[in-house]
Design a protein around this nucleic acid. Structure first.
Lengths: 198, 198
DNA sequence: GCGAATTGACCTTCGGGTAAATTACCTTCG
DNA sequence: CGAAGGTAATTTACCCGAAGGTCAATTCGC
């Protein structure tokens, strides 16, 4: 639109705003389908400004990964810790819901299945996924050992299923924006008790 | 590599072979990250031949969707039908495992989350997803009503979680090619019983 | 005026898509 | 049975738009 020249927005503020937009775009459409120009447009600025602050598309995505990775890891680490796998799962989900209530596509950024198959981006994503998996599904281990199963591959698979289940819940939530975090927690509580009595 | 001219492969055979390759590529990397040239290269032919048979990238993807959609829908429709949600889920999973044992990326083609957000492709995918959801998670409805929950949104969400859980299992399987379909069924049986006793 | 913020215009690569030419198979007629 | 010609299979070379990435200029706050 307007000519060149500063608009009085500090670099820090602008970076935060760009990452806000980028998280939503990446979370909604996936890494491969989002163009830097689209992010710039939706942020109301021009493409070279994005490159000036983040160097490359990967750099922008990395910033998003660190943003949402820290947010989610902190939330899960600080979650309540009831005993019993159902209670533990609910505590974890509740912590995630409240953490991303104003940034609902955060989870999908970390669990975008169409990432570049190698490189720095993949490494950073794997790092945060690993942390979330270790914490969130530590309860799953107890669940399996209590049932007498100790195959490590079983644990690995249950871990993957747990993370994809959370992904499903998050995507459903993005499509039902009227639902509050508390309502989501209650809903998941109903589902989990129903599963336990199946 | 060689010059032009037919190699004596009929259109029908070639189409089947191209779709074989394309299903694997689309399933592994996702719609947006796969180029028609890559599919052609891995099939040992040239790009214009693909366009000559499938018109466009969307046309090629549509062929893949119909291939795997029919395969999966038939498998689930013909699955055993034990009573009880655990038995029903296991029957469904077992049918899917044996159906796609030689085509393990089939499921991921239908559940690629980075599809174009509208258009014919999306419609076809939604059609098959709907069929699979209706059949596969009819059991989920029983599970919820038995537990006294009748919120239709709960059903919708449980449906989504079920489909993503299956997606997780399928992706794990793609990364563990040494596992047989029977082994996967047994593994899922262990997980489901462990869940029931949680 | 100096530096930070910001942009229009440009370059380059990649991927979807196309046109025309080449080769081989199959029919048909002498 | 063999030559002519149509048709199907296949490729090389190309076009074009979109997206990643860069440069130099311009404007504002201090």
């Amino acid at each position: 639109m307007g000519k060149a020249g500063t608009k009085g927005v500090s670099r820090t503020d602008r970076e935060r705003q760009i990452v806000d937009v980028a998280v939503e775009e990446f979370g909604r459409h996936g890494y491969a389908s989002v163009s830097v120009a689209a992010v710039a447009r939706r942020a109301g600025i021009s493409k070279p400004l994005v490159y000036s602050y983040f160097d490359s598309k990967d750099g922008l995505f990395l910033a998003c990964v660190h943003r949402v990775g820290a947010l989610l890891a902190d939330a899960v680490a600080g979650a309540g810790s009831r005993r019993g796998s159902t209670g533990h799962a609910l505590d974890t989900l509740s912590a995630i819901f409240t953490a991303v209530e104003h940034c609902r596509h955060a989870w999908s950024v970390l669990y975008d299945p169409a990432l570049p198959p190698s490189g720095e981006v993949r490494d950073a994503v794997s790092l945060y996924r690993g942390r979330l998996a270790a914490m969130g599904a530590a309860g799953a281990a107890g669940l399996l050992t209590r049932a007498g199963h100790d195959d490590p591959l079983d644990h690995e698979l249950l871990n993957g299923v747990w993370q994809y289940a959370v992904t499903a819940v998050m995507r459903w939530w993005s499509e039902h924006p009227e639902q509050s975090a508390a309502a989501m927690t209650a809903r998941c509580a109903r589902l989990l008790t129903a599963l336990g009595t199946g």
